[in-house]
Nucleic acid binder design. Structure first.
Lengths: 141, 141
DNA sequence: GTAAACTACACCAAACAGGTGAACATTATG
DNA sequence: CATAATGTTCACCTGTTTGGTGTAGTTTAC
């Protein structure tokens, strides 16, 4: 169970956008360079973020991407779900009808707890928190 | 981030062994049949469980597999780690030296929390708990 | 009108998941 | 001792997913 690079890259990009909040649109190329990400791959990722309404894009020269909501109202769960859909460790959580084996349901509750606990962790961290941590680190070093 | 079938099948098999605790060795074929699992695939999985010391095997006719420890001392975390190694959502948690990008470390703490919280959930559930739940369900229906 | 951006769609290689097949080693039982 | 019932090992295979790349557009500031 590894986190996909999609989500990791997406989070990095979102943090970068958060650090640039107020600066106007940030071009894809800038994001990619600042976060050391493959630009065309990032382009695909950021399209998903746009389609989910987390960022808005400005086309044409001088364009780029901007966060659509205040920093403290965007959580990492939002980013995760924009890129991978709702976190679901096993299929039978989404689709209980597919679970015909009674005995399996003994562990089902555990996977449900896993789901809830991960969702809670991700939901509890917002871009504002990450920016704060970033500044603290920058300040110390 | 889906749970692999390795882990799901492994957990099912361990629960089955737990339900048979005290009955002597349970043959692979029986496990596979009772849990509706592909037998040769299960064979590979159960070898990992054996190598990790969770089950012991009895070879030859009349042989099979037996749990090596009391039900309440085997957690799902043990099973998970036997089959997939320690849960690590991102590489940089295991290998901090590979993490050169400072900014990424802002999210690293989050992945660390994710890791800890999932480990806690899995560690809190033992085979004894699952057997108990199983019996409760069987009793109700 | 032209350059700087985003957008869309097709494609691709490597890794991994999930599973199969066959041969061999061990042991209970008659 | 023979044989059948088991576990053990190793090689292989196929479809899907991951992590990208390439190319041809479209939009807009200047």
């Amino acid at each position: 169970m590894r986190l996909s690079t999609r989500v990791r890259y997406g989070c990095r990009a979102m943090v970068d956008l958060a650090l640039h909040a107020g600066d106007g649109p940030v071009a894809l190329e800038v994001l990619a360079r600042e976060r050391h990400l493959p630009d065309r791959y990032l382009a695909k990722i950021i399209q998903d973020l746009r389609r989910s309404g987390l960022v808005s894009s400005v086309r044409g020269a001088g364009g780029g991407y901007v966060l659509r909501a205040p920093l403290d109202s965007i959580s990492l769960l939002d980013v995760y779900e924009a890129l991978e859909g709702p976190f679901c460790p096993v299929e039978c959580l989404d689709d209980p009808d597919g679970c015909e084996i009674v005995e399996e349901c003994v562990t089902r509750e555990v996977w449900d707890e896993v789901q809830k606990s991960l969702n809670a962790v991700l939901k509890s961290v917002t871009l504002a928190d990450l920016v704060r941590r970033h500044n603290e680190k920058a300040g110390k070093s």
